[in-house]
């Protein structure tokens, strides 16, 4: 199994993840950008991702739902800012309702996903930048959603200091 590398950049409220996949760049790009494929892997089991709308162009949106085993539904929407096939896309991810109306009380996340051609494999670099998210609790309560990192230097220092 491939190793994932997780890095936190506290000062800039960023989290970086690097992971290599055993497939050429075209195929990996498609897996990340074709909703019929994304739906297959985006939600961790037993949750299921379900795309309602996907317009993969600059200014376009991806509206999707995370369906939980107890019938829970968490809607999210990504708005794409940059699409440079097959090497890069950027977007903003927000929580919303099923019509795509964004919930302004939950901070958005800014995404940058880069694809590096390694011939038979592809390295994917994911960078997630968070607002200075005050409503941490709200995000955490959304369950598994990836809406949280130690965006708060103080807190991170606390954890480091106490070597938890």
């Amino acid at each position: 199994m491939r190793q994932s590398i997780f890095n936190k950049d506290i000062e800039n409220h960023r989290m970086m993840i690097t992971r290599e996949f055993n497939a050429p760049i075209g195929q990996v790009w498609r897996a990340w950008t074709d909703p019929s494929i994304i739906d297959l892997w985006w939600a961790p089991k037993p949750w299921k991702a379900e795309t309602k709308a996907h317009n993969f162009t600059v200014g376009g949106e991806w509206l999707y739902c995370m369906n939980g085993p107890e019938g829970e539904k968490h809607w999210a929407k990504a708005t794409f800012h940059k699409v440079e096939a097959p090497v890069l896309y950027e977007g903003t991810d927000a929580f919303c309702d099923e019509e795509g109306i964004v919930n302004p009380e939950i901070p958005s996340m800014y995404w940058k996903v880069q694809f590096e051609d390694k011939g038979v494999s592809t390295v994917v670099n994911i960078e997630i930048t968070f607002d200075s998210a005050e409503s941490l609790e709200t995000i955490v309560s959304m369950g598994f959603q990836e809406g949280f990192t130690m965006a708060h230097g103080n807190l991170d220092e606390l954890i480091e200091k106490n070597a938890i």
């Binding site: 491939r2 996949f21 055993n22 990996v28 897996a31 892997w41 961790p44």
Partner: peptide, 10 residues
């Protein structure tokens, strides 16, 4: 878990 699922898909 996401990545492992993607590995399978690929």
């Amino acid at each position: 878990s996401r990545f492992e699922q993607l590995d399978e898909v690929l």
